[in-house]
Amino acid sequence: MAKPKIATAWLAGCAGCHMSFLDIDEAIIEVAKLVEITASPITDFKEFPAVDVGIVEGAVNTTDNVEVVHKLRHACKILMAWGDCACFGGIPTMRNMFDKNELLRRAFVETESTAKGRIPSSDELPRLLDQCKPVHNVVKVDCFVPGCPPSAKAIHYALVELLNGRIPVLPAEMMKFD
């Protein structure tokens, strides 16, 4: 049997989940033996090939995030949300407590270190959504690995479950929201 293919995407998140993935230490060799990692922030693929498992870090915050997460959803059979931002919304959703325009002004104009700032507006640039959302509010998600970031152990557990043909649900003792 060919090795199952994996692609990962990085949306509105801090990259901590990907770091945590690299943190599984020598287990990463084992994982590499079992799966083939294709498009990912840690490789240099430009488009998602068809894969068995798609993994998302981060919440959906911009029009670009929407596009990427839809592409990945189409490219994969099983979509896994990785980390609190993807599963619950997490830190990026704190912006939902403020008005969007106020927020843009604060970030691009009123920052103490900014002189003559302006809010970028170009068709080339992705736009901020009205609200930042967890991934399953945008596309169907098949399994969730929470944690900020998820522990290497939880990531490893989830992958091995998937490789064994099961949809992983973290056991209570592996659950961690921080």
Binding site: D84, C87, V145, M175, F177, D178
Partner: peptide, 26 residues
């Protein structure tokens, strides 16, 4: 707004423990 990652109580919180118990992953 429950953002456990910077909540003082994380690790000691009864709500969080309950969510773990019920494997609330989303």
């Amino acid at each position: 707004n429950h953002l456990c990652m910077f909540c003082e109580q994380s690790g000691d919180c009864e709500l969080q423990k309950m969510a773990y118990r019920y494997q609330m992953d989303n």
